[in-house]
């Protein structure tokens, strides 16, 4: 029915099977023509490659270079210190603590936010639910709410002395003494929960998009077979959206690695560094206005170490995700 419209929500999955490009044998032999044949493609790639080299690759390489200097970010970097910054990063307890927190943020986003958002997306995807567009908008609002404002509102709401949530908990008799949500021991889970709240709308929209790809007739068929809700979810919905799920996973992972704004607005990495993440750690050394001299070289080293480890971890999961992605799209 929609074979030409390419993406119409009604497109079926089996159409997708082998991508149309890549004719199997020939191109190898036609070497001389390759460049000319692809000339336009390279022209189309050029702007991106140019910007990529200038604004991604070069700053990265430059940061690698700076990480070998004791440098405050102003003027030429002259004081070569070899691997001293790296040994300091690698032996810094604070760095690993921040590192662990960064990953916990991702873990929560992936293990809590993603499944929850999927469930809500399934509910909001139902055509029979009235006002679902309004619900979508409401659930999306936190995404666009200014982070600085979020920090202030939650500090007021969660206040152990007279804050709304504690009043509620106390009046219902759930707790005797107020819960200190932002104390040293509970600040991290609290900020994580707020991070989930703030990012939920995005993940929800991703899942809603994914659900659009499930053909209506598959649902019909499953209903005819007498499957109930959870069964349909397991045997119809999830297999179809799994490949998109992999992409959403990557997107969520990337977003959740950097909760800088929220942490800075809520706790400024405190109390006692309980909510420190790598981004705030780097910020403290590179841009903290209270420093006599910023340690930009050291901050670069911390960024490099973090980047390399993240990359390795992603690369390790790569084959697994790839398999999932391909399996789903088959």
């Amino acid at each position: 029915m929609t074979s030409t419209s390419t993406v119409g929500p009604g497109g079926t999955t089996e159409q997708v099977a082998p991508p149309p490009q890549r004719p199997p044998a020939t191109p190898r032999r036609r070497r001389p023509g390759t460049l000319r044949r692809h000339a336009w493609q390279y022209v189309f790639l050029a702007p991106m490659l140019l910007l990529f080299v200038a604004f991604t690759l070069w700053p990265m390489v430059a940061s690698w270079w700076y990480s070998f200097f004791d440098w405050d970010g102003v003027g030429p970097a002259t004081e070569w210190v070899g691997f001293a910054n790296f040994t300091e990063v690698l032996t810094s307890g604070r760095f690993w603590h921040a590192f662990r927190n960064s990953f916990l943020f991702s873990l929560v986003a992936i293990c809590v936010e993603m499944p929850l958002a999927l469930l809500v997306a399934i509910l909001l995807n139902s055509r029979r639910l009235r006002g679902r567009n309004l619900y979508r908008l409401l659930l999306f609002l936190p995404v666009v709410t200014t982070t600085a404002v979020v920090g202030i509102v939650f500090a007021v709401l969660l206040d152990p002395a007279g804050g709304f949530i504690n009043e509620l908990l106390r009046s219902t008799g759930l707790v005797d003494s107020p819960v200190t949500f932002l104390s040293e021991s509970s600040a991290l889970p609290t900020v994580m929960a707020i991070d989930v709240w703030k990012g939920f709308g995005i993940t929800l929209v991703y899942w809603l998009a994914a659900l659009q790809t499930v053909p209506e007739d598959l649902y019909e068929a499953s209903k005819v077979d007498g499957a109930n809700g959870p069964q349909t979810l397991r045997h119809v919905t999830i297999p179809v959206i799994a490949p998109i799920g992999v992409v959403i996973l990557l997107l969520t992972f990337q977003r959740s690695m950097n909760p800088f704004d929220l942490v800075q607005a809520m706790t400024q990495a405190g109390p006692n560094y309980a909510t420190d993440v790598v981004a705030t750690y780097i910020y403290r050394y590179a841009f903290n206005p209270e420093l006599n001299a910023p340690r930009y070289g050291f901050a670069c080293a911390a960024g490099v170490v973090f980047g390399v480890i993240t990359l390795v971890m992603t690369a390790l999961q790569g084959p697994l995700l790839r398999r999932q992605y391909l399996k789903g799209s088959r």
């Binding site: 790639l45 490659l49 990529f52 200038a54 604004f55 991604t56 690759l57 070069w58 700053p59 990265m60 430059a62 940061s63 700076y66 970010g73 990557l250 992972f253 990337q254 690695m257 950097n258 800088f260 790598v278 981004a279 780097i282 910020y283 590179a286 930009y296 901050a299 670069c300 911390a302 960024g303 973090f306 980047g307 993240t310 990359l311 992603t314």
Partner: peptide, 24 residues
């Protein structure tokens, strides 16, 4: 290669690269 390179840089933290960008 290009796609691999792009995806690889996706996970590198940003922010601290501001000074080279500024200089550029």
């Amino acid at each position: 290669v290009i796609v691999g390179l792009l995806i690889a840089t996706m996970f590198i933290p940003h922010g601290y690269t501001i000074i080279p960008i500024f200089k550029l």
